[in-house]
């Protein structure tokens, strides 16, 4: 079968239209632009963080322990004299890695399961639905605790646990989006054009459900980071002395009642900013995809 490329001008025109739409949404809501910039900064820090920080995040120096923020130590130092600024920056990579791999896992598995159960219905749908319901029958953070406790206290298991508790969202979104389009005229038309079920799902339905899925991804990333940090806050997953936002807040918590606020504030603020960024991004993506559905 001959492979036919799209004429170039067509790609350009659709790209141009998309760009125009993007500019419109951004100009309507500058917060979205801010979120994109913030996201860029975090990604930059995740990649290059270890090379740009002023201090070794693990090197302790008891002579300068518990110093408040100063020109030398922007975010102060902790009880072992480690530079909080360097630790906060370096932690970006670990936190983002956990969140991204967990979300990627649940996105891939969830969208496949959701598509199949939405498209075929019947027993596939019942089995997938029942499994997802079982996950959702737990308070999700509690389930994650149980999984990490059972599988062992490691970073990989944090990723698996976060992936499992995120799975229902993707499965449900994919299932719902496929389900509403399953009866659509263009799906029947694609069948008439000789597409097999697999082709139909991959090339006709999947691209159409991708936008709502991407919104879900963005909103979920923030939640995944919160979960991972929450787990390490109660002592699961990441072990000290690795710099990680949740664990740093937990370590700083003991000093807050004696007034050393900077130990917990800065990692906590970084965590908050990251989650805030993903949430704004999710809203922005939603606007990009469908300006009518703004909430």
């Amino acid at each position: 079968m001959a492979v036919i490329e799209q004429p170039d001008d067509k790609i350009e025109s659709s790209l141009a239209a998309w760009w125009r739409h993007f500019r419109y949404v951004v100009s309507e809501n500058p917060v979205t632009l801010f979120a994109f910039c913030l996201f860029g900064m975090f990604v930059f820090l995740a990649f290059f963080g270890p090379w740009i920080v002023p201090f070794d995040p693990l090197a302790s120096d008891t002579s300068s322990a518990l110093q408040p923020p100063s020109w030398k130590h922007w975010f102060g130092t902790d009880n072992l004299g480690r530079d909080v600024f360097s630790r906060v920056i370096v932690a970006t990579r670990l936190d983002f890695m956990i969140a991204f791999s967990a979300v990627a896992l649940s996105f891939v598995i969830g969208s496949v399961l959701g598509c199949l159960s939405g498209y075929y219905g019947g027993w596939t749908d019942r089995i997938v639905g029942r499994s997802v319901d079982t996950i959702m029958a737990f308070p999700l953070f509690v389930l994650a605790m149980g999984i990490v406790a059972a599988l062992g206290n490691t970073v990989e298991n944090i990723v698996y646990a976060t992936a499992i508790i995120n799975l229902p969202f993707y499965t449900r979104v994919a299932r719902a989006e496929v389900n509403i389009r399953r009866q659509a005229g263009f799906v029947d038309a694609a069948k008439l054009a000789g597409n097999s079920d697999a082709r139909l799902l991959t090339f006709h339905l999947y691209p159409n459900i991708l936008p709502p899925m991407m919104v879900q991804v963005s909103l979920n990333l923030g939640w995944a980071i919160l979960n991972a940090a929450g787990l390490s806050f109660i002592g699961l997953g990441v072990r000290p002395p690795s710099p990680e936002w949740g664990i740093m807040v937990a370590e700083g918590a003991t000093f807050i009642v004696s007034g050393q606020w900077w130990l917990a504030l800065f990692p906590g603020a970084a965590l908050m900013l990251a989650v805030f960024c993903f949430n704004l991004l999710g809203d922005g993506l939603r606007d990009l995809i469908d300006p009518q559905r703004r909430t």
Binding site: M1, A2, I4, Q6, F186, A189, A190, A193, N208
Partner: peptide
């Protein structure tokens, strides 16, 4: 709703020719 929103008119018409 019988046209795939992600397919141009060209691709929509070409689809059956490419497949069958």
């Amino acid at each position: 709703e019988s046209l795939n929103p992600r397919f141009s008119a060209f691709d929509a018409i070409a689809e059956p020719l490419r497949r069958l």
